[in-house]
Nucleic acid binder design. Sequence first.
DNA 1: CGCGGGTTTGATGATGCTCAAGCCCGGTGG
DNA 2: CCACCGGGCTTGAGCATCATCAAACCCGCG
Lengths: 192, 192
Amino acid sequence: MFDNINQYTTRCGKFSDEELAYFDGLLISKSIPKKTFLLKEGELCNYEIYVNKGCLRSYFLDKEANEVTLQFAIEDWWISDIASFNERKPSHLFIETLEDSEVLLLSYEAKEKLLARVPGFERMFRLMLQRHLSKLQERLFLTIATTATEKYLDFIERYPTIPQRVAQHYIASYLGFSPEFLSKVRTRLSKK
Amino acid sequence: MFDNINQYTTRCGKFSDEELAYFDGLLISKSIPKKTFLLKEGELCNYEIYVNKGCLRSYFLDKEANEVTLQFAIEDWWISDIASFNERKPSHLFIETLEDSEVLLLSYEAKEKLLARVPGFERMFRLMLQRHLSKLQERLFLTIATTATEKYLDFIERYPTIPQRVAQHYIASYLGFSPEFLSKVRTRLSKK
DNA sequence: CGCGGGTTTGATGATGCTCAAGCCCGGTGG
DNA sequence: CCACCGGGCTTGAGCATCATCAAACCCGCG
């Protein structure tokens, strides 16, 4: 159950078996069917979610109620609303499962306990954030500076497994254009 | 010299006078004229830059050599290439002063020393990253989900002092459209 | 079978880009 | 003091990209 996350943790810092066990003890394990929400707009995000198995996504609604997906999370990824979780304020995002999934939940209180008892985790979370931020900067750059075709090609190269697992209109909403246009981009690409 | 940054630090955590003084002692103070580079593409980013006075920006070049500005930094902001700084790899961005500026530089080695000696700063940097990440998510959302007019109105509301200080084509390159189009947006807005 | 979600296709239109020209204004040299 | 730069901003025409809407299609599932 905790093998994956313990490997993840170990890649981010040096921890004793006892510290790892303490961390694991704070996590809540859940099995969740496809198409269920773990967070809705307006709620407080009280968990950082580690994906053991399955696939989730987070998304906003724009003012015409179109979905804009912020992130996909598959095995060995974390997903949450960082702003809501840390600042203890209502979320603007939705998080839902796209497949039947197994997740580990780290609550706000559990994380506080963890950081108080094992300060080394402070560093781990900082490193996670740094990587996350670098990725997001790259994505912003791609969003601003490239065409739809380039965005799509970059996506399938970066995340080759995701197009096989999720419906294409989710990918369109991640890349920032309409599902119809993604379809047209794909037919243009296949004609070469 | 260190008043501003010490206030900044104090807002992020509890530190003794001695700890603050140790931090200040690690910083390098510099005065830098307008239009000079602190970082160029291909170089290693060896400093996190705190702005005491003045205005800087960071930007990428896209493949047609158009500038895409990632961030403006005025008084009491930090700016750097987080990916390059932390992963010790060549940067993809440029950082330059837009006005004559006074900055405080924190080198990679100094930051390591700081974190080793005063672990409480680990938390401060984590909180900085969290806020930064939340902002960047909002910006990605705006970039994907709003029109040029909305982006511009949001920008001048969010950062009301910046348009008075920097040339408009920098703002266009931050918002992700051409300077000509920003001009047209502005004339349309003023006709109402 | 027929239903329904997802994808494709086509016609039309809006948004924003490119290129080119003109304008405004502060700075500099004659 | 004036003329002339030159950078930045504006304006306009024509064009590419992508959105919207509607219809058809595909296919797994009840």
